[in-house]
Structures are given as structure tokens and as C-alpha cells.
């Protein structure tokens, strides 16, 4: 059972992810809809995992992840996105994300937590 912060600008997708996580017995301790919120909440909640969308209004997921990582080296960030732009994926890898998943790969997600 992990404590998880879910970051996605779509409340619809957020709700789906949260449903899956709760069903999987995990604890969703916070939700954010943009990068700024994610960073603030991360510092406050220190979740085990951050599930991060890429495309968001304001600070995007990759940049938010980078800043979180700067704060805490051991932050575990899993990207879930529809974006498959090689450059973005490469950036995500470079900053040390745990994984970069497609948005509906819930089983894979659960296996990582």
C-alpha cells in the first residue's frame, strides 16, 4: 500500500486513476491539477509515488518532476501520459522517472507501486 499523489489537469482522468489506485488498496493522499500544485503538495505530503501527467496548464509535468527531483533525489515519479514525443520521454528518463506509461496502463501502474 503506497501513499500517492496524483497529478493530472483532467479531473475526469484524475478520477479514473484514483479509482484504480483505491481499488488497488493504495492511499491517494493528494491530487493536483498542475505542476505548481504538484511541487507544493509533494513538499508537504512527501508521497511514496507521484503519478504525473505531462501536458498541463501552467507548469508541465516534466518540469514539475525535475523540480521535485531537485528537492528530493529519491522522489519516485511515474509519468502517465498520452504524449509519446521521443524528446519528452527522453527528458523524463534523464531526470530519473520510474516509468513512462500510457494513460490507460493501469495494471502496469499497479505493478510498479
Amino acid at each position: 500500500m503506497s501513499r500517492i499523489l496524483v497529478v493530472d489537469d483532467s479531473s475526469f482522468m484524475r478520477k479514473r486513476i484514483v479509482e484504480v489506485l483505491l481499488k488497488g488498496g493504495h492511499d491517494v493522499i493528494g491530487q493536483a491539477e498542475n505542476g505548481e500544485q504538484a511541487i507544493a503538495l509533494y513538499a508537504e505530503l512527501l508521497p511514496d509515488f507521484v503519478i504525473m501527467d505531462v501536458t498541463m496548464k501552467g507548469l508541465d509535468g516534466v518540469e514539475a518532476a525535475r523540480r521535485i527531483k531537485k528537492q528530493r533525489q529519491d522522489a519516485k515519479i511515474i509519468f502517465m501520459s498520452l504524449v509519446s514525443d521521443a524528446e519528452i520521454v527522453e527528458q523524463a528518463r534523464a531526470l530519473g522517472a520510474v516509468a513512462f506509461l500510457r494513460k490507460d496502463e493501469y495494471d502496469r501502474l499497479l505493478s510498479l507501486l
Binding site: 509519446s84 528518463r93 522517472a97 513512462f100 506509461l101 502496469r108
Partner: peptide, 9 residues
């Protein structure tokens, strides 16, 4: 790559 799982939309 080893840990990353890159998937196409």
C-alpha cells in the same frame, strides 16, 4: 531501455 517503459499512443 531497462526501466523505462515507453509506449506509443
Amino acid at each position: 531501455s531497462e526501466k523505462m517503459q515507453v509506449l506509443e499512443q
